[in-house]
């Protein structure tokens, strides 16, 4: 059975960049996305069958196991990158219960179910790589990102526990914690905010998504099993 790399949140931003990157490596990619963005659609057209797009709203947690089951009928998921995320920005005291639940669902509960469903198959095959995309806000307090940060902190801890449990079966689980990235999610930053971030970042610039792709490629394709359970901060030194 052909192997595939499963990437969530592939319609835009970092997920789209990751999808594009792994396609250039001639990997088969299954992109999970809530909607079919024009960018993904175009990638699919030019992928020569290397990109499969599965429309799935990850907020529909009950549908995820069946979604993975269907994908696994055609492909063996040899790697998973949990990249889908939603952000409800705002002071915690003003966040609605519904918003809190939705943020936790997509940023923590859905990746947990995805890890579980994919890891079950990896467990049988004795091989697999999982990369969870976390965030600076998973370890640092960022105003307005209380629940998002809590979800990412949870994802980081899940990464460590999964790594611990699955390492005997040749399955590595790591997380990448980017800082500010040039993506749709950061497009709301004002120019002043951007300059402040650059000033506070030792590299003096905002990290490019391509740099995250390089690290993801290393963790999925090249890294030995001994690198597992790690949360790698890739933020230009912002978190130092």
């Amino acid at each position: 059975m052909e192997e595939t790399l499963l990437i969530t949140g592939a319609s835009r931003g970092l997920g789209l960049a990751l999808t594009r990157h792994f396609l250039t490596l001639d990997r088969h990619v299954t992109a999970l996305s809530r909607t079919l963005s024009p960018e993904v659609s175009s990638l699919q057209s030019s992928s020569l069958g290397k990109l499969e797009v599965v429309l799935q709203d990850l907020a529909r947690l009950d549908q995820i196991p069946n979604c993975i089951r269907e994908i696994e009928r055609r492909f063996a998921c040899s790697a998973l990158i949990n990249c889908a995320a939603v952000v409800e920005d705002g002071l915690f005291v003003r966040q609605s219960s519904k918003g809190i639940a939705a943020t936790l669902a997509v940023n923590l509960h859905a990746p947990a179910i995805l890890c579980q469903e994919v890891a079950k198959r990896m467990l049988i095959r004795h091989e697999g790589r999982i990369v969870n995309i976390s965030s600076l806000s998973g370890s640092r307090a960022v105003r307005g990102l209380g629940i998002y940060g809590a979800a990412k902190a949870g994802l980081e801890q899940l990464t460590r526990v999964l790594a611990l449990e699955l390492a005997p079966r040749n399955i590595a689980v790591n997380a990448i914690a980017p800082g500010y990235l040039e993506t749709d999610m950061s497009s709301g930053l004002s120019e002043i905010q951007r300059e402040r971030i650059k000033a506070r970042t030792p590299t003096g610039r905002i990290t490019a998504t391509t740099e995250i792709c390089t690290l993801a490629e290393f963790l999925i394709v090249k890294a030995p099993l001994s690198i597992t359970g790690q949360v790698i901060h890739q933020d230009g030194g912002f978190s130092l």
């Binding site: 079950k120 467990l123 049988i124 449990e165 079966r169």
Partner: peptide
């Protein structure tokens, strides 16, 4: 526990 988990998952996946 991982051996047991692997065995049970194998049955679960093959028999749904």
């Amino acid at each position: 526990s991982l051996d047991v988990a692997e065995m049970l998952v194998d049955f679960e996946l093959s028999l749904e």
